[in-house]
C-alpha cells in the first residue's frame, strides 16, 4: 500500500505552508481565471500577465483555497511557468498531466504515446516530480491537476 510519505513529500508541505506567488494582479492587463473542483470545493484563481509582444508569461499570481495537494500544486505551477513562453507553459501542462498518468492525446485518439514522449522530450519538471506520488491516490489526482487545468483555460482564453 502507498504510504502517506509518497503523497505528502516535504517539498509539497513546504509549498502548502509557504505558497509562492500568492496575490492578485490588476485586470486588465492581467487575465483572471477561476477553477473549481466540484468534488471537494477546492478553488484556484490564476492571474496571468502574458506579454503579447514576446508571448511570455510576464507575471503570475495565485489565490484560492483548498487541500495541501491542490495548493502546493498551484504554488509549484506558478513558479514553473513564470517567465516561460506560452508554448513552454503548454508543454509543461502536458508534461504534468502525463506525470499524473493523464494522456490526453491518447484519450482523444490523436497520436500515440511515442508522439507525446517526443513532444515532452527535454521538458524538466523539477520539483513538480514530487507530486508524482499523487498517482497512487486516484481521488487526489483532481486536486493536483486543478491548477494546471485552470492555467490551460486561462491561456486558451487569452489566445481567443
Amino acid at each position: 500500500m502507498a504510504g502517506l510519505e509518497d503523497l505528502y513529500r516535504e517539498i509539497i508541505l513546504d509549498h502548502y505552508r509557504s505558497p509562492r506567488n500568492r496575490g492578485e494582479l490588476p485586470t486588465p492587463p492581467a487575465h483572471k481565471t477561476e477553477g473549481f473542483n466540484p468534488l471537494c470545493g477546492d478553488e484556484v484563481v490564476v492571474y496571468l500577465d502574458v506579454d503579447p509582444a514576446t508571448d511570455t508569461v510576464r507575471d503570475i499570481k495565485i489565490a484560492g483555497q483548498g487541500c495541501s495537494i491542490s495548493q502546493a500544486s498551484t504554488s509549484m505551477m506558478s513558479g514553473a511557468v513564470k517567465g516561460k513562453t506560452v508554448d513552454e507553459a503548454r508543454r509543461l501542462i502536458r508534461a504534468f498531466k502525463a506525470l499524473m498518468s493523464i494522456h490526453e492525446s491518447k484519450l482523444e485518439g490523436e497520436g500515440d504515446g511515442a508522439d507525446l514522449a517526443a513532444d515532452l522530450e527535454g521538458v524538466r519538471l523539477g520539483d513538480l516530480e514530487a507530486l508524482q506520488g499523487v498517482v497512487k491516490f486516484p481521488v487526489r489526482i483532481k486536486c493536483a491537476t486543478l491548477a494546471w487545468n485552470t492555467l490551460q483555460q486561462g491561456l486558451d482564453e487569452i489566445a481567443e
Binding site: G3, L39, C67, I69, F137
Partner: peptide
C-alpha cells in the same frame, strides 16, 4: 488543515470519514 488532508491521514489509520461539501454547497 484542509478536510481532505485530514481524511487522507485518517484513512491510513483505517478510519473512514467524509471530507468535502457533503452536497450542501
Amino acid at each position: 488543515i484542509h478536510a481532505h488532508d485530514i481524511s487522507q491521514v485518517l484513512d491510513e489509520h483505517g478510519v473512514c470519514v467524509r471530507a468535502g461539501h457533503h452536497c450542501a454547497k
